[in-house]
């Protein structure tokens, strides 16, 4: 296991390096000029050129790349071209709202979706199954901003139970944090509940047709024991994959939900940085996202061995 872990971590290095090169080149080939955003609408061409010079944007691409990668190897992600703040601080500020919303969304999704999926598989073809599948289709089909606005209208505007928008750190004001996290988490969870419930149902139905389940039933085990002890554990492998990639997706940014609920997360930082062509911030965010995907995939693979003893590393 430790050798496998080391091999996987080492394998991530060339992946990240390739991502770094591609991101750097793609950004420089995209039309756009951070100096123009920095200087504003009234800047003359001459002033723009002076700002480009002071930001080092007039240097050859190779010089810029070596400068960036050299700093990166020393743990320095650079400074935002626009706000003049260290990129690491900008990302750290925006990371926690995104992480918290992701954790709450996935916890909520798993807590609701797995029982729903189990119930639908167990009662396959019944009205319960149809109800779960209908919900699943709706959860997939309705855009998140529609769900978001409907929830805001009901719970914030009409009932006035919850705030419309905003984010508070749990360490500053836990009640305020919780009140502001409910609606965005519910909004995002609508997709993940649909996805995980559907996956749990499908995976469980496959397993329920296996010989060992028939054997378990034949030897007189209760239906509950068959379902939870034998079937669900074996059905969990694909469900874990969905949960893991769901987490990576949530971390890499849910910009629509962040905009509707005014959450200062990584999604908005990414979009704002792209509009401003703030190269160091975009580069750091894409590297971070790639890192999260690599880590999540590794964790998913490791979780397989816990769920299925046949899988060994």
């Amino acid at each position: 296991m430790p050798i496998y872990l080391l091999r996987r971590v080492l394998a991530a290095i060339p992946v990240m390096l390739v991502v770094a090169v591609f991101v750097f080149l793609l950004l420089r080939l995209t039309p756009g000029d951070p100096a123009a955003i920095l200087a504003g609408d009234m800047a003359t061409p001459e002033q723009l050129d002076r700002i480009r010079e002071s930001l080092g944007l007039n240097d050859p691409l190779l010089v810029q790349f070596v400068r960036w990668i050299g700093a990166l190897l020393q743990g320095d992600f650079g400074t935002s071209l626009i706000s003049n703040k260290p990129v690491i601080d900008l990302v750290a500020d925006r990371m926690w709202p995104t992480i918290w919303i992701a954790i709450i969304t996935l916890s909520l999704s798993v807590a609701i979706a797995v029982p729903m999926g189990v119930l639908a598989a167990w009662k396959q073809g019944s009205w319960v199954d149809h109800l779960v599948m209908t919900f699943s289709v709706l959860g997939f089909s309705i855009p998140v901003f529609v769900i978001g606005y409907l929830l805001i209208k009901l719970f914030a505007i009409d009932l006035k139970w919850l705030p419309v928008q905003g984010y508070k750190a749990p360490s500053d004001d836990f009640a305020g944090f919780a009140a502001r996290a409910v609606l965005p988490a519910l909004t995002l969870a609508s997709i993940y509940i649909a996805l995980i419930a559907r996956m749990t149902r499908a995976s469980l139905l496959d397993v329920l047709n296996e010989d060992y389940v028939r054997t378990a039933r034949a030897k007189g085990l209760t239906e509950r024991r068959v379902l939870f002890r034998h079937a669900l554990r074996n059905a969990a492998v694909p469900v874990m994959t969905v949960i893991g990639t769901g987490f990576a997706l949530l971390i890499s940014g849910v910009v629509v939900t962040e905009s509707v609920y005014n959450i200062p997360g990584l999604g908005r930082l990414t979009v704002d940085s792209i509009f401003a062509r703030d190269y160091p911030v975009i580069q750091a965010l894409i590297l971070l996202t790639s890192g999260v995907y690599v880590m999540v995939n590794l964790l998913i693979d490791l979780s397989y061995s816990l769920l299925d003893p046949r899988i060994r590393y």
């Binding site: 606005y149 805001i152 914030a156 505007i157 006035k160 705030p163 419309v164 928008q165 905003g166 905009s259 509707v260 609920y261 005014n262 908005r268």
Partner: peptide
């Protein structure tokens, strides 16, 4: 000063006293 990227959310927040 808070930045709100969504106009509808901004109006909702004003209506709600936030």
């Amino acid at each position: 000063w808070v930045t709100m990227p969504d106009a509808q959310t901004t109006i909702n927040a004003l209506m709600n006293g936030e």
